[in-house]
Design a protein around this nucleic acid. Structure first.
Length: 815
DNA sequence: CTTTCGCTAT
């Protein structure tokens, strides 16, 4: 008790009592003197109790507490908070219940204790009990319960507290206001948070600003977070170990590398560089931005092994394709007994899935089972994803079935797995099961379902999911909207694709590329290029895929020079090195325009090895222009690269037939047979009222076959009258002319269009899909059909869309 | 004696 720091206060108390005594009667004076002595001895003990509590010496504090002859409310409060601070809520509660006279601080101490120690629900329960016992909450209590609402995401309760805060005019209190801003941010009500923040204009401090900054960072508003950080620095506000991790998260989210580096500079100057939260955020920022060296360095100089840093490092390696290093890091963690947590496994599993490492996949799976992490849903979800990525859908399903409370991510992992492995129908069935199970949608599963619909071109189902998507309040829209554009475009519904595109709030390069490719595929090459101009004006930089779309558009619109200049601008203006697929597009472009020599020249100049697509383009061009010599070279190379692909055999034999070289044609077909290669049978289908009607050549299996065949006969008579002449080149077999014409007449496209004329209501477009490229004769017939029957026929083939209207095709006869 | 803000996973 050697320290008398309390002396001035005691003197103050004395004066207060003397002053009081002068005004009191003798008996009252006695009571006061008694109380004074009592109070001051208590005061000494309370002081000591508080010191012990502050030092975290709870047991000693309790000993003193037990020996104190008199205890006032202050005494009880100190002891209760001592327990709360040492996370011993059981003892804190016991003392609270025994406290004879509770004041507002007694309640606040226990409420805050619960809220800080992970017992938010208990904290809120006590808060309402406090309320019903007539004890009014203070700014302290309100701060604590707002934090609990944030943690639990209780928007409704948070709003009620906000109402009370307004009523008692505590809105301008910085602690309460910060709690409110945080609560609204965590409940994803960024506008409310922002409104409160702005209305506190001159009362902002760095904690409040940090809360707002964090709100921006966690709700995908990285730019606003960065603006907020700049504002803080302009106002000379300090930043702390809460501010830095949040601003770094914002930088990481949009890969704002140089801003992140500047923040790193601020951190070094601020002295917060040794904080683990700050360090892990830095490692994460560097790793995600691709500066793995800086991330590695930070990780190496850290004094303690922090699991978050290791996790971030692994994620960074996975994201930048260093799969082996990710695995090495994981092994290191395992060997040096660094904690491995439920964040580590998903990252490692992702890398094992991406590089299809089956062996290590299984060992990590066993490790997960051994350590009991299979009970953790995020880990199990990642296992489903890994097996699905490895193409092992049985294992994926097995893990999936064992998850007791499947969430949207569990379902999404499996659904995307089926989509990526080409099982689109199965994926859609699973999606339906998910809806039946009552699981809410998110943007990932929606995006995935849209691309499955795009692949299957089943627009009716896709439209229904679009309806679901609009009704559901899915947070981030971009990826879902992007795949929606592709879905509509791939189904030939360009108006719908455009409507989605126009309605989008924000667009990224993928959105623009989707609409560019969509217009290009639907034969609207020039409009496609107009979108590109708008995109550049909007300040969005094209990526390699954008150029595929542009070159495709030029190729199908016959815009050779435009295409050439895009191709040149790729590397010159945007620093994008043309890949094999870009060369393929260019060769296609030149080839279609009949510039086969130039196409060959370009091929010889390629600085990457030509892949199958390049040879395919050249071969197709050679077929169109009847260049057998070059065609043979292309075909041979293609066969070398894709020995099981029937395309070169079919095209070459077709070219020989056209040239009248029947023997060569037969030779090719025989070697195809010898190799056991079958031509994929061509079929066409129409989707109607959620039913798919599919047809193969000379097919009579459809229930309406009789009607369809007589419709075809009628059709052929009418279009011949209009000037149609069968294009015999496309009848491959060396049969007599009459048989050739017959086989042409009952091609699957013609069966489908006849069915469409019968079954699709007048005025609605007839949408036909074909698994191969449309045959030249059918293409010509469709043009006549569209004018004779005054119908809009949309035919999607393997390569692009053909919109037949009034005797013309949108592809301009290039395909 | 009681109050506000932070990193990693599909």
């Amino acid at each position: 008790m050697g320290c008398y720091t309390w002396a001035p206060r005691r003197r103050c108390l004395c004066l207060q009592y003397i002053f009081k005594l002068q005004t009191l009667s003798p008996s009252a004076s006695f009571r006061f003197i008694h109380n004074f002595v009592y109070d001051s001895s208590n005061f000494v003990s309370n002081q000591r109790l508080s010191e012990l509590s502050k030092d975290g010496r709870v047991d000693e504090a309790r000993k003193l507490f037990d020996h104190m002859p008199y205890r006032d409310t202050y005494t009880w409060n100190i002891m209760i908070s001592a327990y709360a601070n040492s996370r011993n809520m059981v003892e804190a509660r016991k003392l609270f219940d025994e406290t004879p006279t509770k004041n507002s601080i007694t309640w606040s101490s226990l409420v805050s204790g619960y809220c800080r120690n992970g017992c938010e629900v208990e904290g809120l329960r006590l808060f309402s009990q406090m309320w019903s016992e007539g004890q009014k909450p203070s700014q302290y209590t309100l701060g604590s319960v707002l934090r609990a609402c944030s943690t639990l995401g209780l928007l409704h309760s948070g709003k009620m507290i906000h109402g009370y805060v307004t009523k008692i005019q505590l809105e301008a209190n910085i602690f309460v206001a910060t709690g409110l801003v945080d609560m609204y941010s965590k409940c994803k009500c960024l506008l409310e948070a922002e409104f409160l923040f702005v209305s506190l204009s001159d009362r902002k401090n760095y904690v409040l600003s940090t809360a707002m900054l964090t709100g921006y960072a966690q709700n995908g508003e990285s730019l606003k977070a960065m603006q907020c950080f700049k504002e803080m620095r302009i106002q000379k506000m300090e930043s702390n170990h809460f501010t830095f991790p949040s601003i770094l998260t914002a930088c990481t989210a949009i890969s704002a590398y140089s801003f992140g580096q500047q923040v790193h500079g601020c951190i070094i100057l601020s002295g917060f560089g040794a904080n683990v939260y700050v360090q892990s955020a830095l490692v994460d920022m560097y790793a995600k931005c691709g500066d793995l060296n800086s991330a590695r360095m930070l990780l190496n100089i850290m004094e303690i092994d922090d699991v978050v840093c290791w996790n971030s490092m692994i994620v960074g390696c996975v994201a930048h394709g260093h799969m082996e290093e990710a695995l090495v890091l994981f092994h290191k963690m395992h060997n040096r007994d660094t904690v491995i947590d439920d964040f580590t496994y998903p990252s490692v599993l992702k890398s094992l899935g991406t590089c299809r490492d089956l062996k290590n996949g299984e060992s990590v799976h066993s490790l997960i089972m051994k350590t009991g992490f299979d009970a953790c849903k995020t880990v199990s979800n990642a296992l489903v994803d890994m097996y699905a990525k490895q193409g092992n859908l049985n294992c994926a399903l097995e893990v999936f079935n064992k998850i007791s409370d499947k969430d949207v991510i569990s379902w999404t992992s499996l659904v995307t797995g089926y989509v990526h492995n080409g099982f689109h129908e199965k994926a859609l069935k699973l999606f339906c099961d998910m809806r039946i199970a009552g699981v809410d949608l998110d943007q990932f599963v929606i995006a995935c379902v849209f691309s499955a619909c795009a692949e299957l071109t089943i627009i009716e189902f896709g439209r229904q999911v679009h309806g679901n998507f609009i009704k559901s309040s899915v947070g981030s829209l971009l990826s879902a909207e992007n795949s929606l554009i592709t879905m509509y475009a791939k189904c030939g519904c360009l108006e719908d694709a455009t409507r989605v595109f126009d309605s989008m709030g924000t667009r990224n390069v993928i959105s623009w590329t989707a609409i560019i490719v969509g217009y290009a595929q639907n034969g609207r090459g020039k409009d496609s290029l107009r979108f590109y101009d708008r995109m550049i004006i909007d300040g969005v930089k094209p990526d390699p895929v954008t150029f595929i779309g542009l070159l495709f558009a030029c190729s199908h619109a016959g815009l050779v020079e435009t295409g050439r200049s895009y191709f040149e601008s790729m590397e010159k203006v945007y620093g994008i090195k043309p890949g094999s697929d870009h060369y393929a597009c260019m060769i296609d472009l030149l080839g279609r325009a009949g510039k086969l020599n130039e196409a060959e020249e370009l091929l010889n100049r390629m600085d990457v090895e030509p892949d199958a697509t390049v040879w395919k383009s050249l071969l197709s061009a050679c077929r169109v222009h009847g260049n057998l010599e070059l065609g043979e070279r292309a075909g041979k190379n293609l066969i070398k690269l894709e020995p099981l692909n029937s395309l070169p055999y079919v095209l070459l034999s077709n070219m020989f037939s056209v040239a009248g070289r029947w023997e060569d044609a037969t030779h090719i077909r025989n070697s195809m047979k010898r190799m056991g290669i079958n031509k994929e049978p061509g079929y066409s289908w129409i989707e109607m009222k959620s039913q798919v009607h599919s047809f193969i050549s000379e097919d009579r299996s459809h229930p309406l076959a009789a009607e369809i065949y007589s419709k075809i006969d009628e059709m052929m008579i009418l279009i011949k009258e209009a000037g149609y002449v069968p294009v015999m080149n496309f009848a491959l077999h060396d049969m007599d002319e009459e048989a050739k014409e017959r086989s042409l007449t009952y091609h699957s496209e013609k069966l489908a269009v006849a069915f469409g004329l019968l079954a699709v209501p007048n005025g609605a477009p007839i949408r036909i899909f074909k698994n191969l490229r449309v045959c030249g004769d059918c293409h010509s017939a469709m043009k006549y059909i569209s004018s004779v029957f005054k119908r809009h026929v949309i035919l999607r083939d393997l390569n692009c869309f053909h919109h037949f209207k009034e005797g013309k095709c949108s592809c301009g006869d290039f395909w």
